[in-house]
């Protein structure tokens, strides 16, 4: 049963990382323009160097 003392914290931490990641995406407006963001990736304008 000792394995539980590793596995439970690990699963909670991994889940927590996912949750924090999701909250970050919400906070940084990544769901404001889902359609536009899906299209922007098809644009090759900034393929060679990032947008300044």
């Amino acid at each position: 049963m000792n394995v539980l003392s590793y596995l439970i914290p690990i699963s909670l931490i991994l889940g927590g990382v996912g949750l924090i990641g999701f909250i970050y995406t919400v906070r940084s407006d990544q769901y404001d323009d889902p359609e536009g963001d899906a299209r922007r990736i098809l644009n090759d304008e900034w393929d060679d160097h990032p947008k300044p």
Partner: peptide, 28 residues
């Protein structure tokens, strides 16, 4: 309606002197 429209409008607006930044929201 498409990525070409976004790029064209943003490039056109950003080229206007006095504009600091322009961003198109396709959903809205």
């Amino acid at each position: 309606h498409c990525q070409a429209c976004i790029a064209a409008v943003e490039r056109g607006l950003n080229a206007v002197p006095g504009v600091h930044s322009a961003r198109v929201n396709l959903t809205l």
